[in-house]
């Protein structure tokens, strides 16, 4: 697992897996879209509007997951002085930002027909909006310093502070009365979502994750190259 903290090992490892990854993510996305648009049934309450879920939920999960990964890399990077951790932080922040935007837009499009409103200031929606702001600030800091060592540390500290938002997003629907419904899938109980709808959701999540990994690899490689360029 050295490739997670060593740029040379990372380059070697990802050169092997990147081509199968292209193929796999393409297949997954096609199969997932087929399932979610044609093969999955209509919901008993929401009709075919439920299909927005297959985009909305995976992008929300990935937005949170990417921030979580950045938090781990920030803590490890600051504590053990690993430069590769900061390279990863710089590379994957925009990906998380895009997933947060997708999540907010699809959620809005889903909310209008179902709830009767594009946007309300309930705890879940507000905390995700704050997540987007934190992501944007991280991306902006990444582009606004000339001293890389200083920038990296500020970004890492900001990510650690921003990570407080993650449990708040996750548990907001349980702690407070919100318009957003609570989680359908949790570890401790059987999912309250039918298997015919769970399968497309999981395939879409897998394909979104694969695409995120793919773009991350390309961006991290680019970041490694550009830093080597600056040093030499």
């Amino acid at each position: 697992m050295k490739f997670l903290i060593n740029p040379n090992k990372f380059n070697k490892f990802t050169d092997i897996i990147i081509k199968p990854l292209y193929l796999l993510s393409a297949i997954c996305l096609v199969v997932g879209l087929l399932f979610s648009l044609y093969l999955s049934p209509n919901d008993y309450q929401q009709g075919s509007t439920v299909r927005i879920m297959y985009i909305h939920v995976p992008s929300a999960w990935l937005a949170l997951l990417i921030f979580f990964i950045m938090t781990i890399y920030s803590i490890v990077g600051l504590a053990f002085k690993i430069p590769f951790a900061f390279i990863v932080n710089t590379a994957i922040a925009p990906i998380g930002t895009i997933f947060t935007i997708i999540c907010l837009i699809t959620g809005s499009l889903w909310g209008k027909p179902m709830w009767g409103t594009w946007w309300v200031w309930d705890a879940r929606l507000t905390s995700v909006a704050i997540l987007l702001l934190v992501y944007l600030i991280i991306v902006f800091i990444n582009y606004s310093f000339t001293k890389i060592e200083l920038k990296e540390k500020i970004v890492a500290i900001f990510i650690i502070i921003g990570s407080i938002n993650l449990p708040i997003i996750k548990f907001s629907v349980d702690w407070w009365n919100t318009l957003h419904q609570p989680a359908s899938i949790s570890k401790f109980s059987s999912p309250s979502i039918d298997i015919a709808m769970l399968i497309p959701l999981l395939i879409m999540t897998l394909s979104f994750a694969l695409i995120a990994v793919l773009i991350s690899i390309l961006r991290i490689k680019y970041e490694i190259l550009s830093r080597k360029d600056k040093i030499s």
């Binding site: 919901d43 008993y44 009709g47 439920v50 009767g116 309300v120 359908s184 039918d194 015919a196």
Partner: peptide, 17 residues
């Protein structure tokens, strides 16, 4: 002045219902 519908976390195919 405004009514929002709230839906729950249960999803089920129409045919099963």
């Amino acid at each position: 002045s405004t009514v929002y519908a709230k839906h729950d976390e249960n999803y089920m195919p129409n045919s099963i219902k």
